[in-house]
Computed example of a mutant assay.
Amino acid sequence: MSLHVLHFRHEGHARWGVIRNGAITPIPGEFATTAQFIVGNPVERLRELDGPTIAESAVQWLSPVTANQQFICQGANYRQHMIESGMDPDAKKFNMLFTKATSCIVAADSPVVKPAHVRFLDYEIELGLVLKKNVTSRCLITEADLHEYIAGAVIVNDYSARDIQIPQMQFYKGKSYRTFGPIGPYLCLFEKSDMAKLGELELTLTVNGSVRQKDSTTNLVYGPAETLTEISGVHDLYIGDLLSTGTPAGCALSVPSPMKQRLAAALSEEAKWKMFMEIQAARPEYLRAGDMVESRISSRDGSIDLGVQRNHVVDEAS
């Protein structure tokens, strides 16, 4: 059975605690990083934790993934999102991988700062998976042994500046502005029996109360086991690192139809991107200062509930 953990600040100190029904049972010890916390606190031991509690309302949330960990992402990993991104899901035979700067990581209730020069700020709810094992050589990871590699799950919102990411072909830059990576509030730690539910979690994102994204991890194209297997053949992974598994359909980004893309291919670079910017400018779905974005991920039976992210969009201070 899964267990929910909160990383928080209370009376000037950063701590970790098991959270049950809005009450936090602090975990003894100091753990400066996600890796240190995971190594020192197996879920079986935390389940037995007891003692005085602190009301969740009395603490400040911190990200359960600390800034020293790797932030690895999958792109176009839900079938309908691939289609809305102008891709043919039956023709795309590769796993799109990229990274975000860890300096964009913030707590789940942090404001999202819209840089002054960014016109098209977009949202992307994602299921994040936190590693519990170092992977320093190529290996085959299967569904049967995935529990040996995944410690638990978090909510991630992969905020994106589309007018930087797309015209400049800069995934890293367009997705890495400070505050563009809220994580949490909770780290849901798994036991082996919980792993099957990774494939049946429901994701919902609203903006100002209106549903923009809603899907299930049933519809992931490349699952965690095959993705971690692929990454293991490229570079090292470490305990506490984060794999963000892609976003469903419903983003603000509008991709031109295949016919328009063929027409754009004959245009100059300047004319092509002018057309792109005009299309995006007509989209009211892009985020503006004052918007409230809420993200939720849970299983249908409620046994896994990663909490609620609430991010208020604010303009960059002049």
Rank of each mutant, 00 (worst) to 15 (best):
S63R: 09
D315R: 11
R310P: 04
R162D: 01
A55P: 06
M195W: 12
V255H: 07
L253T: 14
A58M: 11
L287R: 01
F98A: 03
G199Q: 11
P248M: 11
A151I: 09
S193Q: 14
D88C: 07
P284Y: 00
W273E: 08
A196C: 08
T142F: 00
P248T: 06
V207W: 03
C104Q: 05
S2I: 08
P89A: 12
P248I: 05
H7Q: 09
T229E: 09
I304N: 03
V106F: 03
G40L: 07
M277D: 15
T99S: 12
V207D: 02
A76E: 14
A116S: 12
D301Y: 04
Y177A: 14
A91R: 15
T33A: 01
V39R: 15
V211A: 03
K92H: 12
N21T: 14
G29E: 10
A271G: 04
I166S: 08
A55H: 06
A271R: 15
L187I: 02
M87C: 05
S268K: 05
Q280A: 09
G86V: 07
A264Y: 12
I166A: 10
G75Y: 01
L287P: 10
R262C: 09
V293P: 01
V39A: 13
H117R: 11
V118M: 02
E191I: 13
I72M: 01
L187H: 01
V313P: 02
P89G: 10
R296E: 08
P224V: 14
A14S: 13
F190I: 05
K173S: 14
D163C: 07
A108R: 00
S137K: 14
Q213R: 05
E48F: 07
T227R: 01
I72K: 00
V221C: 07
D88R: 11
K93N: 14
A161P: 03
S318L: 12
D301E: 09
Y78N: 00
T245R: 02
V154L: 02
W273Y: 14
F37C: 04
V59D: 06
G75W: 01
L187R: 02
Q280C: 11
G233R: 15
A55S: 15
G246W: 06
D50M: 10
K192T: 07
E143F: 05
R310M: 13
M259L: 15
Q70W: 02
Q261R: 13
A32D: 11
M87K: 11
Q80C: 07
I141V: 11
E294D: 05
P224Y: 07
A91E: 11
E56G: 08
Y286P: 04
T247A: 03
K114C: 00
A281L: 08
V118L: 04
E148H: 13
D145L: 06
R178E: 10
M277Q: 14
N219D: 05
M87A: 07
V106P: 06
H81S: 08
V130W: 12
R288V: 12
H4G: 03
D158C: 01
Q165R: 10
E230K: 14
V18C: 04
Q165H: 06
R47N: 10
Q69V: 08
L220R: 09
D291I: 04
E269R: 14
V234K: 15
T227N: 02
A264N: 13
G17S: 13
K192C: 03
I164S: 03
G51P: 06
T142A: 04
S193A: 14
I19E: 13
D90N: 12
R119L: 12
A161V: 04
